[in-house]
Design a binder for these strands. Structure first.
Lengths: 312, 312
DNA sequence: GTGTTCAATCAAATTTGTCTATGAGGAGAC
DNA sequence: GTCTCCTCATAGACAAATTTGATTGAACAC
């Protein structure tokens, strides 16, 4: 049985005439006769009563089958409609993941931007650790993720979005209160609070300040499962100091008077935030659009990385 | 788009592996790859995300299309099921027509017979004049009709069922009360009551007794729209005499004592009852079965005509 | 009878579908 | 890095199917 045969029997049922049905199907009359004969033979059922002079009649069973054939053809049409509607890569659901230390600062700006730029794109947001995001991306549970370098996974492509310097956060009464900037190595003697294992930001800070590595282990252990906001509050309370990505310094945070922010002295440590997706992900246009939207976000202190820079 | 292609994409969606899907479809992997590529190109939509190492992934739109494809395939299966169920020509509805002067006497015996012999055949009965039955038969509103010869219509085949002699019905006090039989020509002097125009039985009686033709016209005009049973009652009431087909003499009629039945003298007039159907009607087995069932009916005074006789 | 109409049939050309063999690309082992 | 394996894509050849124009046959109208 083929869809063509079904179209033919529906045409014959409508026209009640082989020649006219053939014309309506844009085929010759023998084509139609043979096709119907083939279908009748396959189903082992007589669909039409041929009479040479008068119009063709449909058998009872033929009518039932023609009705069902029409249903099949309608459902087939739906496939075309789905394809037509879904052809735009900028429509439909898009599952975007982001790490904990980026999501809360990037997404409030990004989501309204995308909703305006691509109203048919339904964003579904998920925050998690890099490792979990990577797994979900590979699974297909996510379509793209916002992470920070280093990030190299087989089958995954990335594009850098912006470079984000780190800054130091100290309580108001701290000895560094009047300092212009802080050298990375100076962190070693301080009560440095960092996020727990799993947060890539922790590793990035420690990588930037190798001397902190041994010293901070006990303190940071207490902050497993914490967040930058919690740590910021602890800084305000005088428990210690911390390092923050500059995007977390959005002016909507009410406690900004309670912590002092100091930049690092050159060479300033930082990280590159990137978008990652499966190499064979078909909606590349959606990827590009989202990458551009992120680059266009108004984030404090970051240095945007354009596609051209990436190639260099 | 072909049903085969839909089967292929469903298989790939299930197996998430081109090679295994091809195996499940009993085709080679290139066959499947090409078919899917063709469908993707036709729909202008990427259905699957291929990756060389890991299992393939279905795109959002691909999943929608695969779901819809499964629906199409299920509906296609229904066509096969309809064909399978309806393959037996002795099942399903069968629309049988009969003329007024046969139906009431034949059908009460025929219907229970057929219900037993062919329980899947749903008889739908219709009584009408010959001309209306012929029209409905040609239309396809009826599948077969029981009529009496002469009956010759283009595109319609017939088979004789039985020969039915006519008899004379007289009131108890009639002059012919003690007669053994009646000659046809003797009817001419009587108050002969006949059915109205349209009833073939009327024409048949008049054809058998040409002398009655002129004389009876006024009387029979009063009986337009009547029935044999009404006329029988009128005979019992002494209004006149009539001619009946012998099958109308079933012993269940309570007024048989009130009319006397006399056979005709040789050559006895009568008629041949036949089954008629469209020459190309596909359920010939059903026709044969019904013809045989009618021949097997227990009708008083008829002479059964077998298929063999028909050929002669 | 002749002519007309319509579907079935036929033989030939075309298209489609399928196969085997091979290629390309990526991932992982070494 | 190179090699190998795995997976899907591609190429060319072949077989099967679809399609077509021409013809035939049946049924009917005149």
């Amino acid at each position: 049985m083929t869809l063509t045969e079904l179209r033919y029997i529906v045409a014959v049922a409508r026209k009640r005439h082989f020649g006219k049905a053939a014309e309506a199907c844009f085929v010759s009359q023998p084509t139609l006769s043979i096709a119907i004969k083939k279908l009748e033979s396959e189903l082992d059922v007589r669909l039409f009563e041929r009479s040479s002079k008068n119009e063709i009649r449909i058998t009872d069973i033929g009518q039932q089958i023609v009705d069902q054939a029409q249903k099949v053809l309608r459902e087939t049409q739906v496939i075309h409609e789905i394809a037509q509607q879904g052809k735009d890569p900028l429509s439909g659901p898009f599952r975007l993941g982001a790490i904990y230390t980026i999501g809360p600062y990037l997404l409030p700006d990004l989501i309204p931007r995308l909703n305006t730029a691509t109203p048919n794109l339904t964003l579904i947001i998920e925050e998690d650790f890099t490792a979990n995001l990577a797994r979900k991306l590979k699974n297909g549970d996510l379509d793209a993720i916002v992470i920070s370098y280093p990030f190299d996974e087989p089958g995954i492509a990335t594009t850098p979005l912006y470079e984000e310097p780190f800054v130091v956060a100290i309580p108001p009464g701290h000895a560094w209160n009047e300092r212009e900037d802080i050298a990375v190595d100076e962190l070693a003697g301080q009560d440095l609070m960092l996020l727990g294992a799993g947060h890539c930001f922790r590793d990035q800070v420690l990588a930037a300040c190798p001397k902190c590595m041994s010293q901070s282990s006990e303190l940071t252990r207490k902050l497993e499962g914490s967040s930058l906001e919690t740590i910021r509050h602890m800084v305000a309370a005088g428990t210690g100091i911390t390092v923050l990505p500059c995007t977390s310094l959005l002016n909507r945070h009410s406690n900004r008077e309670l912590v002092r922010i100091k930049p690092f002295a050159d060479p300033r440590p930082g990280r590159v935030v990137a978008l990652a997706w499966r190499k064979h992900y078909p909606r590349s246009e959606a990827i590009e659009t989202i990458a551009e939207a992120i680059r266009g976000c108004d984030l404090p202190g970051v240095k945007r990385i354009d596609d051209a820079d990436q190639a260099a």
